[in-house]
């Protein structure tokens, strides 16, 4: 263990700074997200949009599934990465109204790694794959949109028709969905 001889100096207010000057050191969250974004390895069905390329903490993810119930659709998710990333997960919302058992009509997404199972070792890429998986395998066991989940469980044909109806733009029950086909 060192002895801090250096402590025994008189410190002065306004001591001139060494040459790093007035630069702010990037926060750990900033360093980590830079790495995450630079290493994004998107499947061919996914794309990102950065409205302001200087702000890596706010962006959109577009998923266009090429198989499954949602094939041909185009779904946009907003990502907001907070100052406590990666200790806390980013906030992700679905911006496209979608008929889906795990996504409600306000855009809340029920994906375990977005809440209770988030770990700092996970990355933005993990979330991208998680979201893509939701479209391939909608899960009626943990529903957020209960009606959709019940239909999926009891009548897959009807569920498929409902998804198609919603994606083409139209009513499923009393809920109107905007067209989101590519």
């Amino acid at each position: 263990m060192i002895k801090l001889f250096s402590l025994k100096q008189q410190k002065k207010d306004g001591e001139t700074a060494p040459k790093t000057g007035n630069q702010k050191k990037p926060s750990a969250a900033q360093l980590r997200i830079t790495k995450d974004i630079n290493e994004l390895n998107l499947p061919k069905t996914c794309n990102t949009e950065f409205p302001d390329p200087d702000d890596l903490l706010t962006f959109k993810l577009i998923i266009c599934p090429d198989e499954g119930f949602y094939r041909g659709g185009r779904f946009s998710f907003s990502f907001k990465v907070g100052p406590n990333y990666p200790h806390e997960p980013p906030k992700v919302k679905c911006e496209t109204p979608v008929y889906h058992p795990n996504i409600d009509l306000e855009g809340n997404v029920c994906l375990n790694i977005l809440r209770e199972d988030w770990k700092p070792v996970l990355t933005i890429n993990s979330i991208v794959y998680g979201l893509q998986y939701l479209f391939l395998e909608p899960n009626p066991e943990d529903p957020l949109n209960k009606e959709a989940a019940e239909v999926l469980q009891n009548n897959r044909r009807l569920f498929e028709q409902n998804v198609q109806k919603a994606m083409r733009g139209g009513y499923v029950g009393s809920v109107y969905f905007e067209r989101c086909l590519k």
């Binding site: 900033q30 830079t34 974004i37 290493e39 794309n47 990102t48 950065f50 390329p53 200087d54 890596l56």
Partner: peptide, 20 residues
């Protein structure tokens, strides 16, 4: 991929891997 803090603001100088 390169970023910097210039005048207190985050700037993305170049990032080759993300198309947008």
């Amino acid at each position: 991929g390169l970023t910097a803090t210039i005048d207190g603001k985050n700037r993305t100088l170049y990032m080759p891997t993300v198309a947008s």
